[in-house]
Design a protein around this nucleic acid. Sequence first.
DNA 1: AACAAAGTATACCGATCTGTATACTTTAAG
DNA 2: CTTAAAGTATACAGATCGGTATACTTTGTT
Lengths: 192, 192
Amino acid sequence: MPALSKRDQLIHTALELFNQHGFHATGIDLIAKESGVTKKTLYSHFGSKDDLIVATLRELDVQSRSYFLKHVNEAGNDPRRRLLAIFDAAACWFREQNFFGCTFINAIGEYAEGNLSIRQVCAEYKRLGREFIKGLCEQAGAPDPQALADELSILLEGAIVTAQVSPQVDAASIAKRAASVLLEHALERTPT
Amino acid sequence: MPALSKRDQLIHTALELFNQHGFHATGIDLIAKESGVTKKTLYSHFGSKDDLIVATLRELDVQSRSYFLKHVNEAGNDPRRRLLAIFDAAACWFREQNFFGCTFINAIGEYAEGNLSIRQVCAEYKRLGREFIKGLCEQAGAPDPQALADELSILLEGAIVTAQVSPQVDAASIAKRAASVLLEHALERTPT
DNA sequence: AACAAAGTATACCGATCTGTATACTTTAAG
DNA sequence: CTTAAAGTATACAGATCGGTATACTTTGTT
């Protein structure tokens, strides 16, 4: 039972380095060295640095969504509590030692006009996040789940970048409070 | 009456290039070339690339806040309308040809752990933005202007990154709608 | 007219970047 | 036991990076 395949080691290392130092600032040589792997092996698994970036973001997509899903499931069965648990999950995330914002947002910032597939992975991740929230809104009985989900998603994004840029602001709590207002406003109009 | 000093030309060019291609991806040579200036002149005005970045962000700080201020003032005197005008200004911004997100947010993504002064300029810009919104909330008679301003600021940040990552989403309108709900909810509890 | 500041043109420095080449070694399956 | 895949070690290529050096030219002021 090998701990991790070389490929997974590379992705794991790249994820950490890209998150901490950014994409352009992280060289292939460093990723290979930190992974305990030669550059040749790296290039046998990934055709280029951009390929490695895309593979890394895909892995992060899976990890990140399962992170939020876990927190939501731990919040129990009440749909409103489940929705607000998203912001508790965010609060946990922001408190992590190596929180440097959302890697997808950071990636978009660095590849605003370069590699298209990088942007696509980021956009798809965010789209799936909105879909997830929309599902929770449906379960909560929101009359317009799409609209509510869009609003809550924007609150979450705003909390992430605020926590990144202005760490002294308790962005997660503020966003949760606002989300609660939006949620009640949307649900109290539900006919019965 | 010279059109622009060399220093201003450099800052203007750097602003465009950093915005479009990012910071690490934009080389000093290109900035100098596009400014019609030699590298030596560049380094006589700015001691290093990081110095140029900081100066560029300071200039953007001034430009950006006056941009929002103008839109707010054009919205008339009603405090609620003035507050919501922030999101109309954002909508205009997002529609611009060369909209690549908030350059300050992008800068934080690239310099999460490097140059401290870069992060400080970004944090200060965002702090001034929250102060500006807080002033509008006070004028609107919000019982807790700080709390409302924090919520609206997070909505604005979220709209910016959503417009950047997911252009097909009408982030500005969604954020404005949510802001309107939060605003009414905060003001309807005003005594008198 | 003289002179100092500021700018140009160009070459260079050492470091680092992505990506490739060569030659040897481990490993696992048939 | 053999053999082919996968990995290591290392060196290299060509480009670009931030930053500096040298020598000449423009420009504005007194």
